[in-house]
Design a protein around this nucleic acid. Structure first.
Lengths: 352, 352
DNA sequence: CCAACAATCTGTAACGTTTCAGATGCTTGC
DNA sequence: GCAAGCATCTGAAACGTTACAGATTGTTGG
C-alpha cells in the first residue's frame, strides 16, 4: 500500500461518468484487476485484509459486474427464459407464473426474459433459438406433452430446464405439476356426494400430458363412485368461448344430458355455465359444476360453483427454483414437485 | 482469393462445435474479420461481390452475432425492459401487454425482459436499476402518475422509454393511453339514455393519471346529461374484491342509492355486481352498470352489463413501437398515441 | 509517367471479465 | 545458509464485436 507503482493506465480517469469496473477498484485499492476480481468472489488465495478492503471499496462505489463482460468471458448469461404460447385465450395465469418466477429470481442475479411463440411456429423454435444462441442459462416451458420433443432436445444437449407439467419420456428432468388426477377425483367425488350420476368432463387440450391425467382421474373416480360418463369430447378448454358455450348448450338439450360437469379451466367455465343456462337449465338445481380456477373470482360469477384452486404463482416459484437448482448442479430428479388441489374458502368449497 | 496468406490463427478450427463467429466466416471467405463485420451490415466501402459472398456464407453457416460481444463493445443491449407491479390482483391484462410487446419485438433483434417490483419497494428502484446498470436500451412503465418521478428521472438522463398512460409533467415523452375521459363520457351517456340519473363511479387508483381523466370525463358528462353523482370514493379498482363488494352492498342499502354504475376495471365489476346483488337488487332493473373490460368475458358473467373494451395487446404493441422509435432516433412527440374506447359486440354494447 | 485519388480491404485496440501461468516475498526445515 | 514451500499477488490472453487508422490496389488526370 506504500509502494504505489501506479501501473501506467494511460486513459484512466477514476470517476469519469461511467460506472465503476474492476479497473476502477483496482486503481483505487492499488491492486491488480485479477486480485480484485478474485477478492470479490471470495477466492481462497486472497489475504483476509485485502478481501475486506476490496469489498468495502466495491460496496462504496456501488460496483456491479458488467453482465456483457461476464457473459462474453464465461458464457454465463444469468438469464432464465420463460417460453410462452401467445395463443392462450384468457390467461391471467400467465402473469401469475411470471410473477412467481420473478419472486424467486429477484434474490439472484438472474433476469427473466420472455420468449413467445405462436401457433404458426413450431413450439420447438423458441427452444432451439435459446439453446443454439446460448441466450439463457435455463428455460421454463409449459404446455408439456407426454413425449415432448423440446424435452428430448434439451436433455440431449444437457441444457437446464424445467417443465410445467410432466412428461412420459422416461427422462429425468425437473418439473412442477398440479395433480390433475387428484383434481378430477375430488371433483367427481364432490358431484357424486351431491347425488349427480351422469358426469361430463371439459378436458384440457388433447395432446398435453395433463389431459390424460385428468381423464384418468375422472375414469378412476367414476368407477369408484359408480357414476357414468356423458361424453363431451368435441371441445376442450383451448376452444373459443363461443364454441364451448354452443357445444354445451347443444349437449344440455339432449335427452341424456349430464347432471354434473367438471371444468379444467376457470375461463372455460364461464362459457360452460352460459351454455347450460342457454339451454334453460339452472346451476345447483339441474346440474352442478366443479371447476378449477387460478384466480379467486368464479365464486362471484355463480355462487353455486364448486371451485378448486390451482396456484400458478406457486408454480412459477417452483419452476424457477427447479431450473436454478439444475443450473446449480443439483440432480434433476431432486427438482420435481407436485402441487395438491387446494380447497377454496367458503361453503361450497371442494377438498379436505 | 489466390494468395491465401492464412493468417496464423493458431487455434482456429472452423467447425469445432461452437457457433460460428465473425472469425469463422473470415476464415471461410479468406477475408479479415473487419471486412466481414462491415459486409454484414451493408457498410458502403465493401465491394458488391464481397458483400454478397459474405452474406451468403453467413446465411449458410447460420451466423448470429454474439450478443455479449456486441453489447460489450457498443453498449447496445438489444433488450427492452417491461417494468411491472406484482401486486396487481387480477391481471390478465398483464399477459396481454406482454404479448403485444412481444409481437412487435419478434420482428427485431430485441429481447423482452420483465423487471418486477412490489409494494415494498420504491417504484423508482427497478427503473434506476435498469438505467444505472444499462441492462436495457429502453423501458416501458405503467401505473403512470401525473408528476411521475420515473419519467423525470429518465428524461433527465435521456434514457428512452414509453409510458402506459400520460403524465402532466410538461415533458415530451412517448406514451400510449386509453382515452378514459371518453370512456367515462360514453358510459354516462349510456346510463343517461337508459334513464339513470344517480350515478356512481368506481374509479381507478388514486394518484394515477388516468384516475383524474376518468373523474373529469365523468364530471363533464354529468353536467352534459344533467345526471347527478352519488359519491363512491371509499374504494377504487385497486382494492380487494371483498372490500369492493362490501362497500358496494353498503352503498346500495342506503336511501339515496345510485341507479347507475361505471366501473373502471373488469375484475372489479365482478365484485361490484356481487355487492349490488347482496343488497337484493337486480342488474338491469334496479341499476345499470357500464364496465371496462380487457378480456371479452363479462358478457358471460351478466348479460345485462354494458361493456367497453380496452385492448391491452394493442397497448403493448404501441408501447413497443414507441420505445423502439425513440431508440431509433424519432422525436418523442411523434410517438404518442391514444386509443379510443371500443364498442363491444352484442346488443348491449356501448359506443358507436 | 507520376501524383493523387477512390475503392477495397486490413490489423490493432478496446469494451470488462476470468483463467492461466507465473512472480514476489516470506517462512520453514534441515 | 539455502532450497523448498506457502501465501499473496500479478500481467497477459482470451471471449466476439466494432471503431480507428491505415494499407494495398487500380484508376485517373495532368
Amino acid at each position: 500500500m506504500d509502494k504505489e507503482v501506479l501501473h501506467d493506465n494511460e486513459t484512466l480517469r477514476p470517476d469519469e461518468a461511467g460506472r465503476p469496473t474492476l479497473k476502477t477498484i483496482a486503481f483505487m485499492t492499488g491492486l491488480g484487476v485479477t486480485t480484485v476480481s478474485r477478492a470479490l468472489k471470495d477466492a481462497p488465495e486472497i489475504g483476509e485484509e485485502t478481501r475486506r478492503r476490496v469489498q468495502l471499496v466495491a460496496r462504496q462505489v456501488g460496483y456491479r459486474p458488467n453482465r456483457a463482460g461476464v457473459r462474453l468471458r464465461t458464457g454465463k448469461t444469468n438469464v432464465i427464459s420463460l417460453v410462452l404460447n401467445t395463443d392462450e385465450q384468457i390467461m391471467s395465469f400467465v402473469s401469475d407464473i411470471i410473477y412467481g418466477v420473478s419472486e424467486v429470481l429477484a434474490a439472484t442475479p438472474y433476469h427473466l426474459i420472455v420468449t413467445p411463440y405462436s401457433h404458426v411456429q413450431d413450439p420447438m423454435d423458441p427452444v432451439r433459438y435459446v439453446v443454439e444462441t446460448g441466450s439463457a442459462d435455463g428455460i421454463i416451458i409449459s404446455r408439456t406433452q407426454p413425449d415432448d420433443p423440446r424435452v428430448r432436445y434439451m436433455v440431449e444437449r444437457n441444457f437446464p430446464f424445467a417443465t410445467h407439467g410432466r412428461t412420459e419420456t422416461g427422462l429425468a428432468h425437473p418439473f412442477h405439476d398440479f395433480d390433475n388426477h387428484a383434481f378430477a377425483v375430488e371433483a367427481v367425488r364432490r358431484l357424486a356426494s351431491l347425488g349427480r350420476r351422469r358426469l361430463a368432463l371439459l378436458t384440457p387440450p388433447q395432446g398435453l400430458t395433463y389431459h390424460q391425467h385428468t381423464v384418468d382421474g375422472f375414469a378412476d373416480a367414476l368407477s369408484e363412485t359408480g357414476a357414468s360418463e356423458i361424453p363431451f369430447n368435441t371441445v376442450s378448454i383451448d376452444h373459443s368461448m363461443e364454441q364451448i358455450r354452443a357445444r354445451t348448450a347443444q349437449l344440455m338439450r339432449r335427452e341424456n344430458r349430464p347432471d354434473g360437469f367438471i371444468s379444467s379451466a376457470g375461463a372455460a367455465t364461464l362459457a360452460l355455465v352460459a351454455g347450460i343456462e342457454d339451454a334453460g337449465l339452472k346451476l345447483g338445481r339441474d346440474v352442478d359444476v366443479v371447476s378449477k380456477q387460478s384466480s379467486p373470482i368464479l365464486h362471484l360469477f355463480r355462487p353455486e360453483l364448486h371451485l378448486i384452486n390451482e396456484d400458478f404463482r406457486l408454480a412459477g416459484r417452483e419452476l424457477a427454483r427447479s431450473v436454478l437448482g439444475w443450473i446449480g448442479g443439483k440432480s434433476p430428479q431432486s427438482l420435481q414437485s407436485l402441487s395438491v388441489p387446494q380447497e377454496v374458502e367458503g361453503s361450497r368449497a371442494v377438498g379436505q
